[in-house]
Design a protein around this nucleic acid. Sequence first.
DNA 1: ACGGTTTCTGGACGACTGTCAAGAATTTCC
DNA 2: GGAAATTCTTGACAGTCGTCCAGAAACCGT
Lengths: 208, 208
Amino acid sequence: MSTVERVGRRQVDKFEERRRELADAALQTLSTLGYARTSLREIAHNSAFSHGVLHYYFRDKVDLITYCVRQYKAVCVQRYDQIVATARTPDGLAEGFADGLVATLVADGAMHRLWYDLRSQALFEESFREDVLEIDATLERMIWRIVSRYSELTGSPVLTGESMTYAMFDGLFQQALLRHLAGQDGAELHLHASVRQLIDQVVPTTSR
Amino acid sequence: MSTVERVGRRQVDKFEERRRELADAALQTLSTLGYARTSLREIAHNSAFSHGVLHYYFRDKVDLITYCVRQYKAVCVQRYDQIVATARTPDGLAEGFADGLVATLVADGAMHRLWYDLRSQALFEESFREDVLEIDATLERMIWRIVSRYSELTGSPVLTGESMTYAMFDGLFQQALLRHLAGQDGAELHLHASVRQLIDQVVPTTSR
DNA sequence: ACGGTTTCTGGACGACTGTCAAGAATTTCC
DNA sequence: GGAAATTCTTGACAGTCGTCCAGAAACCGT
């Protein structure tokens, strides 16, 4: 009994580990080619295995991509949370947030465009919607954590709600990503400036 | 000579007319299936012709879709401009704008999701970028026209720049579209409220 | 009514797709 | 070390894709 359980546990671990490994290869492929141009064979080619193995670890293509989206979420979450943790002054937090967004724009541009691609797919394919909405909610909470922490540090209230705050910052980031990938220089600087301005607009400290 | 010209002109007209007709069928197909799932045969199936004719009027698939994107722009522009023209009071303009956005969200949801899909494709495919950036600039100008007209009517200045203003409104609309298509009720109401709030935030009239 | 253009059809092509299954290779356990 | 269970490879399958082309159909001025 106990041996069976132990073995079963080990199997699950190995199984899950390989799923993660394959999902990594899939995420890498998706982020460079986009959803429309990514095939299972190309994903396998970017991994250490042959194309047949994908159907051993995933039911079908939707199952694989859904798993990828969920794994992507985990990467997202850890990315931002270190920003809010370190800062102790309002300006430090705001600057750190703006810097962090610019940094991830440049460093993880491919991953971010994949996110926007998949979110667009969710507008058509119902099977993606649930996960996409959940990731959106997670990102929303992350933005809210930063903004409300900023509000704490300044003592001024946040004027907008959670979803609206996220939507606006997301709009800024998306525009910046498009400009950045199009090679438009100044996109990073512009993102930095507009993020700083939006923070001050959402949590106004200077009296007008 | 003159007959040749006249005939040539007529030919161009008929040629262009058919291109528009096929692009219409393509736009309809794209807006219901999305870029990734749209094939030339399906487009032809949604038109009055067979699939072979597409290569008589368009060089290849990219040429067709590029033409579609440009045609889509024309539809976009005329959509919003009537809103700003009618209103004469600040509140009338703001309300008309919010109403208009909600109306087009509900009525033209399929077209809007196509726009976000194609804009995501531009993050990967360089051939779409130029047209997408141009449409984005057009939309940006439209938003700016409304906001600056609102600023005129109230006498208060606009606090944010053109691109930032557009990015924020676009973020709101995109979130609302996702919620709306996901069947989340209240999405339209929420869009209306947040648009009103954003207008007041970008062009503040009440002193704080 | 006819000859020449333009327009359109339908089939064919090679390449690629997701999926599956038979069997080889590897690991695991006694 | 050998049997059993697993993991992985390889090749095949039925479709679909974009593209191209030979020829039918429609339209044209004369």
